[in-house]
């Protein structure tokens, strides 16, 4: 029987105060093994203070082919930006 170990995505917090960031992925039989392997693969030089692993199949990703309709609505809403509003140059702290 040849059953491939599932793929896991690894997220590492490099120091407290910062978000966990995606570092890469690895194969492991279960969550515990994924965590241990992530430590060995991605944090050999003190790169982090906290690790998250999540099985890759649990991540739903957007399709880059749909980027047009997905992100375009945000692009044409200039009024979401401070520069859209006309204020006198003398104004401070705003």
């Amino acid at each position: 029987m040849k059953k491939e170990w599932p793929l896991w995505e690894v997220f590492v917090r490099s120091k407290n105060g910062l978000e966990h960031r995606h570092f890469g992925s690895l194969h492991a039989a279960d969550a515990k093994m994924a965590l241990e392997n992530a430590r060995d693969v991605y944090t050999r030089r003190n790169e982090g203070v906290s690790i998250w692993v999540v099985e890759s199949k649990h991540i739903t990703a957007s399709n880059p082919e749909n980027n047009g309709e997905l992100f375009e609505p945000a692009q044409n809403k200039v009024y979401r930006h401070p520069t859209f509003y006309d204020l006198p140059d003398e104004i401070k702290h705003m």
Binding site: N16, G17, L18, E19, Y79, R80, H81, P82, F84, Y85, D86, L87, I91, M94
Partner: peptide
Amino acid sequence: GPYARAMVRICKEESFHQRQGYE
């Protein structure tokens, strides 16, 4: 951490709120 990070994002987004009111 989670509170401070939420504040950073909120402050960035909120700068237009005050300007639209003043306008």
